[in-house]
Design a protein around this nucleic acid. Structure first.
Lengths: 211, 211
DNA sequence: GTCTATACGCTGATAGAC
DNA sequence: GTCTATCAGCGTATAGAC
């Protein structure tokens, strides 16, 4: 019965199958709670193939890390290439990150939410990676050109992107139960405009200010 | 030689010695890269004592988790108990978090930066814990009273605290090389006031607005 | 209560057939 | 290139002396 016994042909090449199985497990259970055997079972390949292709578990993590960072890098580049103001670039990146969080959850979870330095030896913090530097660079240019209020670069970048990152984190944790893109307009408004309700100047203050 | 051979008396009780050794190791190397033997050596106690007191490695993590959350809870309460406006309460919490990041680094690193759900079985995300709920509550009250611009609660809380959390993260990763309290004034200003430089109305716009 | 020595399962990794 | 069978070491946990 060659027909019945033939396993369903898998369209994905082996290395992709391994990687997509691995990222799923890593994101759901955490890197350290996943064994090579788990990946092997999930990907329907043998242990030997895993070691042949990636040299081991950490090798898989490395491959994922570099591929996903590269993907994120291209995303940032695609925004930079458009003719947008600094603020528009920041907002577009936030918009894309929110979309990715819904449609490509595992990428976002692995890139933004995992502690790579704890399992990839010699890996610097993710924030030192190219796409993150480029983002800070966008902010810096915006300040230089007078489009964005001038603060310390870390402060500005943190305030501009911190809210979005925090929402992504809470969405990934399941605390926010609606898709993030629904909040895009609000978070952009809240980030750039004042969060504080301006105090309506009293009659007295108006008089005083005229002096 | 009873005098010489007597080990230096350790002032800390055993359970504290274990916990402070454990948190140091967990924060520096990551929970999964620390073995019970490591903790035992660092704390100068025997394995038996560790299992007697905490029942194992996860027990230590549990104890740390609850004690440190309780400490954070008290910190938030101390702010709430003062007679401050909602905005002042938020700022005071940020100020204290920045101070803690320098003086009690391990607490902040363990509470804010570790992925507890990956190693404490059945533990909900840290954001569902009491102190974090209280913080969101402060924000909600500020919006209800008209002190803070009204947005979705998640959006507001994320924008108000996201910048500070992000700076804490980058400070812990070693990217920011100056103590966070130096940035307190700036981050509060950037968070609450507008980040965008208002466009100076042109003569034409002024005329148009008068119609 | 504290310690040491020991057991045992799991995991990452390899060897070698096909 | 892919697979199975097997290994060696580590890390958790326990038993039992003191």
């Amino acid at each position: 019965m060659p027909y019945l016994s033939r396993p369903e042909p898998d369209p994905m090449p082996m290395d992709c199958r391994i990687l997509s199985a691995a990222i799923k497990l890593f994101v759901n259970q955490g890197y350290h709670n996943v064994s090579v055997h788990d990946i092997q079972k999930q990907a329907n390949v043998s242990i030997g193939s895993i070691y042949k292709h990636f040299g081991g578990k950490e090798g898989i993590a490395r491959a994922l890390h570099s591929r996903l960072l590269e993907e994120m890098n291209q995303m940032v580049d695609s925004v930079i290439d458009q003719n947008l103001s600094a603020i528009e670039q920041c907002n577009r990146i936030i918009e894309l990150l929110f979309e990715y969080t819904e449609t490509r959850t595992e990428i976002i979870a692995f890139v933004l939410n995992a502690r790579h330095t704890e399992f990839i030896t010699g890996e610097p913090p993710i924030c030192t990676a190219e796409p993150f530097q480029k983002i800070r660079n966008i902010v810096q240019k915006g300040m230089d050109s007078g489009e964005i209020q001038t603060y310390n670069c870390w402060v500005s970048a943190s305030v501009i992107f911190g809210g979005a990152f925090r929402m992504i984190y809470m969405r990934l944790e399941g605390l926010i139960d609606r898709p993030l893109p629904e909040f895009y307009e609000e978070i952009v408004a809240a980030t750039w405009k004042t969060m504080e309700v301006p105090i309506e100047p009293t009659h007295l203050q108006k008089l005083a200010s005229k002096e």
